[in-house]
Write a protein that binds this DNA or RNA. Structure first.
Length: 309
DNA sequence: GAAACGTGGAG
DNA sequence: TCTCCAAGTTT
């Protein structure tokens, strides 16, 4: 903690107290949520809003309550159950992680950051989050919500830097409560504050428990010093990949590769969901399909394409 | 380190 | 309508 430990301690109290009174009731926060359930939620929540995760999460946990349950299934089942959550490689990596946990960790999610970090699809954030939320470790959790709260509250800036800097993680460690239990609560409390109050656009400062302590408020709420560059989407390979995956998820049988590659203009009504949307240039459709196969999200045997088993 | 990687709700 | 953005990871 540093020279301003007393001041930061007051902020710990205010934000943690706010969390106790305002936190959402989410299934992965219940006392019954297993480490595996929490791990599943963390995978699904990567770059994906809570409201869209909720229904998929519930069905996933009911169907595969332990890592070994998922590990026993072919990858195709995970990809289908993932539905339209987006970034299907997360489902692929979650499946791979379940296999690894079953094989090397006795079927139990490991409890240390280092062990978690070694699993497929688990980066610095997810390892810290699982260790904290599932095992009570006082790790330093840094996600997009926490980065934004720190940038405003401690940094006086409207937004964090486009790319995380080393100084951000140093500051996160400095403001971390020294007490184990307080630190554990702090991680989720700051994240929730960022999600509900200290939001990216139009933050609800009148509801903020640390309004009086906020450096951004004190500075007069200056504008961001950069303009975020939007994520391109229309016409990208990602869009075409998504459409191909949608077809494969809905098709009970392998799909002729030609149906993805041939010119669909004027073709009879598509046999598979979404197929008629595949109006991208031939070269792009070829590239997207090849990419999916390269990434192990699809397989091709002879002229047929199917989900990987 | 930049770029790629899905999807759909909100403003 | 269109842009922004949501509990990131991997190459």
């Amino acid at each position: 903690m540093g020279a301003y430990s007393g001041w930061v301690h007051r902020i710990h109290e205010l934000i943690n107290h706010w969390y106790r009174n305002h936190a959402r009731q989410l299934p992965w926060r219940s006392a019954e949520a297993s480490p595996w359930a929490i791990m599943v939620s963390e995978f699904m929540l990567q770059q994906t809003p809570v409201n869209r995760v909720l229904p998929v999460y519930t069905q996933w946990i009911a169907r595969w309550p332990e890592p070994a349950d998922l590990a026993a299934e072919p990858l195709s089942e995970a990809l289908i159950a993932w539905g339209r959550l987006g970034y299907p490689r997360r489902a692929q990596r979650l499946h791979a992680a379940a296999v690894e946990i079953t094989r090397s960790h006795g079927g139990k999610v490991p409890g240390t950051e280092a062990e978690l970090r070694a699993l497929p699809g688990v980066g610095d954030y997810t390892a810290a989050a699982i260790a904290c939320f599932a095992f009570g470790e006082p790790t330093v959790v840094v996600d997009t919500n926490i980065r934004r709260v720190h940038a405003r509250l401690f940094g006086g800036a409207a937004l964090p830097e486009p790319h995380p800097r080393a100084s951000e993680f140093r500051r996160a460690r400095e403001v971390q409560p020294s007490d184990r239990h307080t630190a554990n609560l702090w991680n989720i409390s700051v994240m929730e504050l960022g999600a509900l109050v200290c939001t990216a656009r139009s933050p609800k400062c009148d509801e903020c428990p640390v309004f009086a302590q906020c450096a951004w408020i004190a500075a007069g709420r200056p504008e961001p010093h950069y303009t975020p560059k939007g994520q391109s989407w229309a016409g990208t390979d990602r869009q075409v990949r998504g459409e191909i995956m949608a077809v494969l998820r809905h098709s009970p049988e392998p799909v002729p590769a030609a149906s993805f590659l041939e010119d669909l203009t004027g073709a009879p009504a598509a046999e598979y969901t979404g197929l008629q949307k595949l109006n991208a240039p031939l070269e792009q459709r070829q590239r997207a399909l090849a990419g999916l196969i390269q990434d192990g999200l699809a397989m091709q045997s002879e002229t047929l394409v199917h989900l990987p088993r």
